[in-house]
Every structure is written in structure tokens, then in C-alpha cells.
């Protein structure tokens, strides 16, 4: 069992490699936010924050917080030079209108068809979908960044059992065990983490996995 922090670091580092110079990206709350820490210095990624701006920067130094500048989680943040503010209708027109290249979100469950469940557990946790449903439908590429299992139970399933966030919108799943692409034929294991075997990935996944003929080791 590897350390929890290392697991998150592996996932965030690998997701960060998905972006190219000039991409507009929305990072979800939690683990996806950490992706920003690992983006290559030569790659300029413009982060969109659905509460109403582009040019999301790192957390401010203590004492330099601006009460008017928060991210979608309500945390104090900074704005990069050239940032721009807008209202919520514009923010979601940007998202839904296909002007965001990629969104990175966590998941409770994801399945063989690219269905995603990440907004509620009936009877237990009903926080609301916030902006997730629009992001998953609107972003050109939907990347799920999550731990491969939850307390040992698979999260990558044949079919999601929880209420969906969106149907058939996920493109890529990145976990600490590997990188899985959602294709018309099913889920394709494209990369595998160092020191992990294909058998271990299959054992931790309920969905059928097609093993890529060109299976690579995850570069971190």
C-alpha cells in the first residue's frame, strides 16, 4: 500500500502532462486542483474558474488575501497577469460553448461507456452538482483524476450505480495504477504505473479492460 500523498502526486503529475501550450483548463475541487502544481513551466495553461474568471493563479501569501477573489471552492486565490472576470452566464457560456479545452474532475464511479457519477450518494451525501454537469458536457476533453479504488472497492465499473453527472462524456481516466482511455470499443489501458502489473490493474477494476498493444509505463 503506497502512501496517500504519493498516490495523489502520481495522479496529479500524470494529468498535468495532458495539457499543451495555450490550453484553457478547468480544475475541479480537491485532487484536480493539485494538477496545477505540476504543469511544465514551458506550457502556458490558462485556468478557468467557474465562479467567473480566467487566469486563476496560486493561493496568495498569508496576509495578502483579497476578499473579492476566490476560486469555485470559495478559497482565496490570485489572478495571473492578463486575467479576465465575467458573470456566471458568461462563465458557463465559455464552458458549455466548447471554449474550455479540458476539465479535470474527481469521480465516485466511472464506467465502460464513459458515464460519470460524482455528485451524490442518495440518502447519504447530496451536496448538489454545482458546475460539474455543465463542465462535463461542455469541455472538449473530460479527464477523471481519482484513486483507482475506494477502500479496496473498484470505482471503474461496468455500469455506474450512482446517479450520473453526465452520460458518455468521459474521455480519459488517470489513477495511481494507470491511464485508461474511453473508446467506442470500451476502456483501453494505455499506460501502467511503474512497479504495477496488468493483472493488478485488472483485479482492481470491475469494468472490462482492453490492454493496449502499445502499453507504456506512466511517465511521471
Amino acid at each position: 500500500m503506497i502512501d496517500k500523498n504519493l498516490v495523489r502526486e502520481i495522479i496529479a503529475k500524470r494529468v498535468a502532462k495532458e495539457f499543451k501550450d495555450g490550453d484553457v483548463v478547468n480544475l475541479g475541487i480537491g485532487l484536480p486542483t493539485e494538477v496545477a502544481n505540476y504543469i511544465d513551466k514551458d506550457v502556458e495553461v490558462i485556468l478557468q474558474s467557474e465562479n467567473g474568471f480566467i487566469g486563476l493563479g496560486p493561493a496568495p501569501e498569508e496576509g495578502k488575501e483579497d476578499k473579492d477573489l476566490v476560486n469555485a471552492g470559495g478559497k482565496y486565490v490570485t489572478m495571473m497577469p492578463g486575467g479576465a472576470c465575467f458573470d456566471s452566464a458568461m462563465s458557463f457560456a465559455i464552458i458549455r460553448g466548447g471554449h474550455v479545452d479540458a476539465t479535470v474532475l474527481g469521480a465516485l464511479q466511472v464506467d465502460e461507456e464513459g458515464n460519470l457519477a460524482n455528485w451524490m450518494i442518495p440518502g447519504k451525501m447530496v451536496p448538489g452538482m454545482g458546475g460539474a454537469m455543465d463542465l462535463v458536457v461542455g469541455a472538449k476533453k473530460v479527464i477523471v483524476a481519482m484513486e483507482h479504488t475506494a477502500k479496496g472497492a473498484p470505482k471503474i465499473l461496468k455500469r455506474c450505480t450512482l446517479p450520473l453527472t453526465a452520460a458518455k462524456e468521459v474521455n480519459l481516466i488517470v489513477t495511481e495504477m494507470g491511464v485508461i482511455e474511453v473508446t467506442d470499443k470500451g476502456l483501453v489501458l494505455k499506460e501502467i504505473a511503474p512497479n504495477t502489473t496488468v493483472e493488478e490493474v485488472i483485479a482492481a477494476t470491475e469494468a472490462n479492460l482492453i490492454i493496449s498493444e502499445d502499453l507504456k509505463v506512466m511517465e511521471l
Binding site: E50, D87, S88, A89, S91, F92, I95, R96, V126, G128, M129, G130, G131, A132, M133, D134, G138
Partner: peptide
Amino acid sequence: ELVPQGTLAERIR
């Protein structure tokens, strides 16, 4: 009544 954020914005707009 839970409404997706972008839908909420557009319904108001």
C-alpha cells in the same frame, strides 16, 4: 431544487 450551475444562470438570464 438542485439546478446545474450553468442552467441556473441561463434560466435567470
